[in-house]
Design a binder for these strands. Structure first.
Length: 744
RNA sequence: GGGCGCUUAGCUCAGUUGGUUAGAGCAUCUCAUUUACACUGAGAGGGUCAGGGGUUCGAAUCCCUUAGCGCCCACCA
């Protein structure tokens, strides 16, 4: 006589007669998980005590998710599902990033295209409204896509880098840093993006190789030294000529000063000696233009030269000269000046060279170095850290932000996978300069600083007030600028958990366990989170950093719209199922290494899902008459051996999971399931079931059922939908694979 | 210019502190046709582990060196 479970089994077996249908199954299963509440750690059963937390890298609200996001979601979901099954109280906190400049410039482009209007035509308020609407819509898309990919994150705790709570965190940190002297306002040469009409940080520059002309000439006929440049138009802003102190050709001129008229502009040139000058390059003499070159600016500082001779404005137009060049674009002015040099007989040489040109990552605009009054974070300035749990940094000691970044990683409180990225990280820190955080765009966190001019400040700088709220008195005007988007993302691990409030979540879940992200934002984001968390909380933000590689097409190219080689993750999920997509993103994908994916590969792994499906069908059919005994222990010798083998397999998988070798665990599970369990054990069982005695059969049947359960458990983090679906078919209604115990 | 990484089967890649005859998936070839599954099974072929040198009882693995490829940082004006 069949018991209830067996009747259930024989009944459900019929659905296994058809191939597995992911499209029908996946939404149903996701809803079941959501309804269970288990994504939220507060709802997990009693046994889940020890915390395990991951804060999701927030996707930009600039559109839709791409394969890189799918990889992030897959890997983090694997970690979370594994730890949840291990009995951890798991929190995976999702969110989105306002992405300031990226989002604004995207919406600006759309408005320009559709309405032929600029942001200045719309005004600040209207533009922000439009960007806000776009961001909201984009957010909806992202959330629904993440759900399709099976993300078991706690939507009830979702955060946005620009929402009320995160804004309070930003203002609070800004004020703290301002009061500590770590945020300062300085007139310095910065990277100006004329296209985006904003400053950008060093990290937002992309170098592009282009053809350029290298001109060699003299300022005037009686000027003794020839100089070379690719940018003759900036030479109207020159204040000096620098030569190497040991260059015998020019020794006699050092210290002398000359006046010249360069294309109608009067210039005063001092000959200086500086070791930075390369004797071998060009003529060995360098025209110093402090306001329009980073290197020249530094040289001017060393030699006390005037730095205020600005000849180019924010629109890349000339601000000096006569009608020939005044108001002209730099490229036009360049041609004019070259013509003038030729006509005056001053041009000595014109060479074709390759040049690396700085462009803005977001807009593609050619970066123009300009001196501007901006806000900076001082990375080398010592301050007193009140509280520190970072190894090697004492509470109450004087440290710099750079030292915090270094100590957090060098003392192994943060472990980067793969470890060779440690070296890259330290090299970056060594070269790091102060971080320009103010942006002349509108979408983002407004700089929490107010200015007031009054008769008292006449002729002087206005009064400055920095606070989390606007000053009560009248007459104050807030700084127009917003903050670099990475300033708010740097707080992500703790701002999402409620800081500056002392929440339970913050004390329980922070520091988080893992940060999983692409290696391309190691500097942008990972390093700055370490900086910010060390400064604000005095701890590391996470214990492990897992860096994945870039997702590429089969030829190793980046996926892009213009190449038309984009593979859409939602498309793939719809066609082949999320499980197939997830496991193809996992197998053979090693951390830190770029990863090639193709539709063929995903299609191939769909077969694996079906294999698991048919294994289930075989096991159910061949065990339908079994009186299953949970505590059965009368296994045959052959089965004992198989159990031993299975235990070794599980142990192996567990150690791979613990060591973040998902690429290996997934492949081993695949192999065991298909080529050991199905090809060998099931085939062998057919013989056992026809030839064996009752006892042997009973033993094998127990083994098959138990092993199927084991496979479903270890495969679940990788292929959550099909495993849960099968689990639901072979177990009681109350049992859910998502919280089933991992075998140990 | 500085740094990091890679080079293993036709393709994509593993190879966890050096240890039998170097593995997997895909692809190829042969065989199997109402078999749990053709979204299948059984089998086969295919590698001087980029080249050279060294350490070692033993090297794809460690060291040196050469070549090629990729990435990051710097940005020579």
């Amino acid at each position: 006589m069949l018991n209830e479970e067996q009747i259930e089994n024989s009944h459900v077996a019929s659905k296994f007669l058809k191939p597995y249908n992911p499209q029908e199954t996946e939404p149903k299963i996701y809803k079941m998980w959501e309804d269970s509440g288990y994504f939220n750690p507060d709802n997990l059963p009693e046994r889940h005590k020890e915390k395990y937390s991951i804060i999701m890298p927030p996707p930009n609200v600039t559109g839709i998710l791409h394969m890189g996001h799918a990889l992030t979601i897959t890997l983090e979901d694997i970690m979370i599902r594994y730890q949840r099954m291990r009995g951890k109280k798991t929190l995976w906190l999702p969110g989105t990033d306002h992405a300031a400049i990226a989002t604004q410039s995207k919406v600006e482009k759309m408005i320009k295209k559709e309405e032929d209007k600029s942001r200045y035509d719309l005004g600040r308020e209207e533009l922000l409204k439009r960007v806000g609407e776009y961001a909201k819509q984009s957010h909806e898309t992202i959330v629904s896509q993440a759900k399709i990919l099976g993300a078991s994150c706690d939507w009830s705790r979702e955060a946005f880098t620009l929402d009320e709570k995160r804004n309070l965190a930003v203002r609070t940190v800004f004020k703290k840093m301002y009061d500590d002297g770590l945020i300062y306002r300085g007139f310095r040469i910065v990277n100006w993006d004329p296209k985006g009409q904003t400053t950008i940080s060093d990290d937002e520059i992309v170098y592009e190789e282009r053809d350029a002309k290298f001109y060699t000439f003299k300022y005037s006929k009686d000027f003794p030294i020839s100089i070379s440049t690719t940018r003759p138009e900036t030479k109207v802003g020159d204040v000096a000529v620098a030569v190497h102190p040991e260059d015998t050709r020019y020794e006699k001129y050092i210290g002398k000063e000359y006046d010249a008229e360069f294309c109608g502009v009067k210039i005063h040139i001092k000959i200086i000696a500086d070791k930075e000058v390369d004797k071998e390059f060009g003529t060995g003499a360098l025209g110093v233009t402090p306001a329009h070159s980073m290197i020249d600016w530094e040289m001017a500082e060393r030699h006390n030269l005037p730095k205020d001779k600005i000849v180019i404005n924010e629109k890349s137009r000339m601000t000096v000269g006569d009608e020939r060049i005044l108001g002209k674009k730099v490229t036009e002015a360049r041609e004019m000046i070259v013509e003038w040099l030729k006509s005056e007989g001053l041009l000595e040489k014109e060479e074709q060279i390759k040049q690396n040109i700085s462009t803005a990552e977001r807009t593609g605009g050619i970066v123009e170095p300009l001196p501007k009054l901006q806000w900076f974070v001082a990375v080398n300035k010592p301050f007193k850290i009140e509280h520190s749990e970072i190894n090697g940094i004492e509470s109450g000691s004087m440290v710099t932000l750079k030292e915090i970044m270094r100590a957090s990683v060098s003392n192994n409180q943060i472990n980067i996978i793969p470890d060779y990225f440690n070296k890259t990280y330290f090299h970056w820190i060594d070269k790091l300069n102060d971080w320009c955080i103010s942006r002349q765009i509108w979408y983002g966190h407004r700089v929490p600083v107010w200015y007031r001019s009054s008769p008292l400040t006449a002729g002087k700088s206005p009064e400055i007030y920095c606070g989390t709220e606007a000053p009560k008195e009248s007459g104050w005007a807030q700084d127009e600028d917003t903050l670099d988007t990475w300033f708010s993302s740097a707080m992500w691990t703790f701002s999402t958990l409620g800081w500056p409030e002392k929440t339970k979540d913050l004390s329980f879940f922070h520091p988080t366990d893992v940060l999983e992200t692409g290696y391309d934002i190691l500097f942008f984001w990972v390093a700055r989170m370490i900086l910010m968390t060390g400064y604000v909380i005095g701890t590391v933000p996470f214990k492990t950093v897992y860096l994945h590689g870039m997702v590429r097409d089969t030829k190793g190219r980046k996926m892009s719209k213009s190449l038309g080689n984009n593979i859409d993750p939602v498309d793939m999920a719809n066609k082949y199922g999320t499980d197939a997509e997830r496991i193809s993103l996992t197998i053979a994908n090693t951390p830190g290494t770029d990863f090639k994916i193709s539709e063929d590969k995903i299609r191939g792994y769909k077969n694996f899902g079906n294999k698991v499906w048919n294994i289930t069908r075989f096991v159910l059919e061949s065990t339908k008459d079994l009186k299953y005994n949970k505590n059965y222990n009368d296994f045959s010798d052959a089965d004992k051996k198989l159990i031993e083998e299975r235990d070794i397999f599980v142990k192996d998988i567990t150690s791979d999971m613990e060591e973040y070798r998902f690429y290996m665990a997934s492949e081993k599970i695949y192999h065991y399931t298909w080529h050991t369990f199905a090809d060998l054990i099931l085939e062998d069982s057919k013989k056992t079931f026809t030839e064996g005695d009752e006892k042997t059969k009973e033993s094998r049947k127990h083994f098959l059922l138990e092993t199927l359960r084991t496979i479903l458990i270890v495969l679940h983090p990788f292929m959550p939908f099909i495993t849960e679906e099968i689990w639901q078919s072979i177990n009681d209604k109350e049992s859910m694979l998502i919280i089933e115990s991992w075998p140990v």
